[in-house]
Amino acid sequence: MRTIPFSEGESPLVLVDLIHSTRVRDVVQSGYCTALKSDTLYDIQVMMKERHVGGVLITDKTGRRLLGILTVANIMKAFEDGTIQETAEHHMTKTVVTLDGEMPLSFAVEMFDKYSFNMLPVLNDEKLIAGVITPRDIIMYLLSSMNEEVAKLEESVKQAQSLIDKTAGADLDGFAQNKSRVLRYVTIRNDFNTAGKISNEIKTVLKEMGIDKKIIRRISVAAYELEINQVVHSYGGEMIFIITPEKVEILAHDKGPGIEDVDKAMQEGFSTATDWVRSLGFGAGMGLPNSKRVSDLFIINSAKGQPTDVRAVIFLDEKKKEEENRESL
């Protein structure tokens, strides 16, 4: 069987983010068919035909507690064996694989990949039926979410492009020589496995562009600290790198929850990090001060309950740096 073409390491971050941040309960459909274990397979089969469903949940009399599941395959076997007039009780699948509404969608995808089920029941905290989930539901949900995500991506590329148009100004030669680039990445909350990847990728890109080693290091440090911050403190976000012949601009936006006291967060040693984060070697309260230290321009906007936006600029050209500094005075 072909495996689902989705890999944590290789799929675009938007997709990885989507499939991890979506919960089974976001996708579950509450419309499903139930029958009692005393119902005959024949009656159940008639209902399946009428309602166009491939499976029926066998429940207790309340209709909420799951006893088993009966699918087209069970019905076909009953026709073959001549047991179609018997009750569901002895023909249903009793060891039912169920999902919890809080599980990430990736889990459901794995289950459908592993077993040949066409439908999985979803239970709530009280182990009562919350609904069912089918591969079709997942496809529908992912397609509509992907539409939204791609629309957002297109919008942010447009925004980034207009930013370049503004910032690059007259220096169009740089574009012609392919010296300017816009790169966008997505960060995922608490995803320590891929944290740092973005910054190291940027470092490779800058090296290939032949930028001075000391400047690359400053850009990488700013990028790394901002990336780690998004992974550790935010609900996830995005990092856009606008590289022109004159400067590298890092735009780090996240989805919240925002910084209560920005001045305090900018102080060295101030940290709200958990022990878990500290055990990973971060959370020493150096992140934002470090990014600021290596940047020529550093602007942060945030408030409690708001997204955090950081703009960090590092000039590649000393002259340009002086000009801009004069302008800002």
Partner: peptide
């Protein structure tokens, strides 16, 4: 052990 210190 704190990577931010190393980045300085």
């Amino acid at each position: 052990d704190l990577m931010s210190e190393v980045l300085v």
